[in-house]
Nucleic acid binder design. Structure first.
Length: 268
DNA sequence: AATATTGTTCAGCA
DNA sequence: GTGCTGAACAATAT
């Protein structure tokens, strides 16, 4: 489920495993994963390179190489990174395998093949070219920044939160989670949300991401009051005991509590 | 067998 | 220009 928190966990896991290792060989099991680069060219660029540093922007993971280039990984709707010793069974749905000099392998796993890996010259350029908004977990993403992004928005709050060009990292599941804790109905139009409630949403972006990242890093279960555990029509709301409803919008399901997530009336 | 699924992009339209 | 919708991508899980 790679939204920002999952990608951040991949990054930290990468840092404690494959970082500073040298690539001995790259196996491309399915080149549909490669973005704007042939299998051969990708192998040329990666072979012999050392993974020097990692950065994350939204749902994108950047791995800086010692060759002045940077590998960019995106995980699509399904996808993950796995690390394992050579000789052990490779994970199911591995699409790209990096054989490392230390006898371990890094596996890019993508069951539905919607993820992409590319090589870019510069991370900052990539973010600009793809018009990505600020990373929502960064310290630079402040209340003021968020407030200004939301000013004058005409659409619904959920779409705005999920719009990667406005702000990067929030997807379907955690946009629901954020609004669930903010007592806001996902289809509320932005201009009907007052500053106090917007601030609550902002605080909950940080809260949800921090909790999810910590939960996953420690391999724990989600907090009991999280909606993510109750994503099904008619489930009981873990906050107020109300009913969880499901509503579709452009092919995607939104879950919310009918009882405590109300539409807001009147601007500011 | 039918339906749902975490992301992104694009066409068509209001 | 903004925003909404549905389709497409490809595949798995229930």
């Amino acid at each position: 489920m790679p939204e920002l928190p999952e990608v951040e966990v991949f990054r930290q896991t990468f840092n404690s495993s494959a970082l500073n290792q040298k690539v001995a060989r790259v196996e491309v099991l399915d080149d549909i994963i490669l973005e704007n680069i042939s299998s051969r060219a990708f192998q040329m660029k990666l072979k012999g390179a050392t993974f020097q540093a990692t950065h994350r922007h939204g749902k994108n993971l950047f791995v800086q190489l010692d060759t002045e280039e940077t590998m960019m990984l995106h995980f699509g709707m399904s996808g993950s990174l796995k690390y394992g010793k050579d000789g052990e069974e490779e994970p199911e749905y591995s699409r790209i395998i990096f054989n490392l000099n230390n006898g371990y392998n890094l596996y890019y796993v993508s069951p539905r093949k919607l993820g992409r890996i590319g090589v870019v010259e510069d991370e900052a350029d990539y973010i600009v070219e793809n018009k990505l908004g600020p990373d929502t977990y960064s310290d630079d993403f402040t209340w003021d920044v968020f407030k200004n992004i939301m000013k004058g928005r005409r659409g619904i709050i959920k779409s705005s939160l999920m719009n990667q060009k406005l702000m990067a990292g929030i997807g379907n599941v955690y946009s629901d989670e954020i609004l669930f804790h903010s007592n806001i109905y996902p289809f509320t139009v932005v201009h009907e949300i007052n500053d106090k409630e917007l601030k609550t949403i902002f605080d909950n972006i940080k809260m949800v991401f921090e909790k999810v990242i910590n939960t996953k890093l420690k391999g724990k279960k989600f907090p009991k009051n999280f909606l993510v555990l109750k994503r099904s029509e008619g489930a009981e709301c873990p906050i107020c005991g109300g009913r969880i409803k499901r509503e579709k919008f452009s092919g995607r399901s939104s879950y919310y509590c009918e009882a405590h997530q109300k539409k807001n009336l009147g601007p500011n």
